[in-house]
Computed example of a mutant assay.
Amino acid sequence: MAAVLAIGAVAGFSSHEPKRNFATPTALCDTPIEGKLLDPVLPRSGETISMRAAGVIGWDRCLVSVDDEEVMSASFEWFEKGTKPVKVAKSQRNLVLVERVSDDGRYAWGDRGAVSHVTCPNPKVSSRKGTYELLASVYVVDAAKEEAMKKLVLGFAGAVSKSEECSG
């Protein structure tokens, strides 16, 4: 009887848990970011990860795919001064961030995305200074932990503030 149970345990409960076969990136397209910020929001399984940059003047976007399926995007875009992160988030389907807004109103987050103001005192395009504000956004297809989304958007906003976009 014990032998039957042992065989049943091996045969019936062998775990084929999906495995992640790609390395966690250390950049979102051309924007460096700590891998530890990306790791919790990426799928737990998959063979390959790829990124594709898109954008126009004043708006950059990085689309991240695992096994050719889009899993997240990160972007930064210039908005009129006074634009709130919650307003930017409303442009994304299925994303509501009104309940989780920082005390100072600089960022908002949820389990599928987050938006943050970017400190950019020296914009590449000098006419934006004082008239426009740069906001960074991250969105994921599958829900992630809210705290991970908050950390990711703050890390991404910090990285964008050090990028060419803000080194006028």
Rank of each mutant, 00 (worst) to 15 (best):
A2H: 03
V4K: 08
V4Q: 06
A6H: 14
A6T: 01
I7Y: 10
I7L: 14
G8E: 09
V10T: 09
S14I: 12
S14K: 15
E17A: 06
E17Y: 05
K19L: 10
N21Y: 12
A23S: 13
T24Y: 04
T24L: 03
P25D: 12
P25F: 01
P25M: 11
T26D: 11
A27Q: 15
A27D: 03
C29T: 01
D30V: 13
I33W: 08
G35S: 05
K36G: 07
L37E: 04
L37F: 15
L38W: 06
V41H: 06
V41K: 05
V41G: 05
L42W: 05
P43D: 02
P43H: 08
R44C: 08
S45G: 15
G46N: 09
G46M: 08
A53I: 01
A53E: 07
A53V: 03
A54V: 02
A54G: 14
G55D: 10
G55L: 04
G55P: 05
I57A: 13
G58T: 08
W59E: 02
D60W: 15
C62Q: 12
V66Y: 03
D67H: 04
D67C: 01
E69C: 04
E70P: 15
S73E: 02
S75C: 07
W78M: 06
E80L: 14
K81Q: 08
T83D: 00
T83L: 00
K84V: 15
P85D: 11
P85R: 10
V86L: 10
V86F: 02
K87S: 13
S91Y: 12
S91W: 00
Q92N: 10
N94A: 07
N94V: 01
L95C: 07
L95P: 04
V98S: 15
R100N: 14
D103P: 12
D104H: 14
D104K: 09
Y107Q: 13
Y107I: 05
D111T: 14
D111C: 09
R112L: 00
R112W: 03
G113A: 01
A114Y: 05
S116N: 15
V118H: 05
C120T: 08
P123L: 03
K124S: 14
K124Q: 14
V125F: 14
V125H: 10
V125T: 08
S126I: 11
S127N: 09
K129Y: 00
G130C: 02
G130L: 01
T131A: 07
T131Y: 13
T131S: 07
A136W: 02
V140P: 12
V141R: 11
K145P: 00
A148G: 00
A148Y: 14
A148H: 14
M149C: 12
M149R: 00
K150H: 06
V153M: 08
L154F: 10
G155Q: 03
F156H: 11
F156S: 05
A157E: 07
A159C: 00
S161T: 01
K162M: 01
K162W: 02
S163R: 03
S163N: 00
E164K: 12
E165N: 06
S167Q: 15
G168Q: 05
